[in-house]
Design a protein around this nucleic acid. Structure first.
Lengths: 104, 104
DNA sequence: TAAAAGTACTTTGTAAAACAAAGTATAAAT
DNA sequence: ATTTATACTTTGTTTTACAAAGTACTTTTA
């Protein structure tokens, strides 16, 4: 007896993580501060959500310098893109037609 | 400076609540046990999420009898439907094209 | 008719998450 | 030398999620 919500990945339950992934699906990379502005959250909060996605191997980090300023940017991994697309498909499926069958 | 995720409603962050709302958008009413089977969670867990949605005035409860058996069923309120549609629109907007503009 | 089982919870307790705020390390600009 | 910026980490509090057990009522079943 499998539930209809089981294909939704727990990592994407959260709005911040949803925002991060969406941003990184469209912009193939984005730096810390742009993301902070985009999401309008504190840096500690952002860092922790980024770390959570990193830990799942859904995003990866690039530490570089722009000119002489340190700049950390993020991008999705193939795993991350696949997982996110999967999640969106599950969402779509969930939202449309969960008709109750006469039996079961 | 408004974040791109602010139109996502907190009540719908959770997969179970997402499942409940989806089920109730398609089936205009559903009873406790059908929902429990559909979502495959414990009854305590389901009850608490139902209560959370009730508290937001997103769903309402009907306590009736079918034959002689007590039967509790749930349905969305207009408020709930509106909020959920809003959430889905925000989701859709979030997921598609969050292009980084040169300024800001 | 007494015991077992089903419905729809509530209560209790624990573990995990979310988050803000403050602190830290490094480097750069003034 | 002091201030400012970047990108965190740490600390601590509040909120959530959840399972498991308990409860009140009813209804089968033995």
């Amino acid at each position: 007896m499998k539930g209809i919500i089981e294909n939704l990945h727990k990592a994407f339950d959260n709005r911040v993580r949803l925002g991060i992934m969406s941003a990184l699906m469209v912009n193939e990379r984005m730096d810390f501060n742009s993301m902070k502005d985009l999401l309008d959250i504190t840096d500690g909060n952002l860092a922790s959500h980024l770390k959570a996605l990193e830990k799942e191997d859904f995003i990866l980090v690039n530490k570089t310098f722009i000119g002489r300023k340190p700049n950390t940017s993020y991008q999705t991994t193939p795993t991350g893109r696949k997982a996110f697309e999967n999640h969106l498909n599950a969402l779509e499926k969930l939202i449309s037609s969960q008709q109750m069958k006469p039996d079961e």
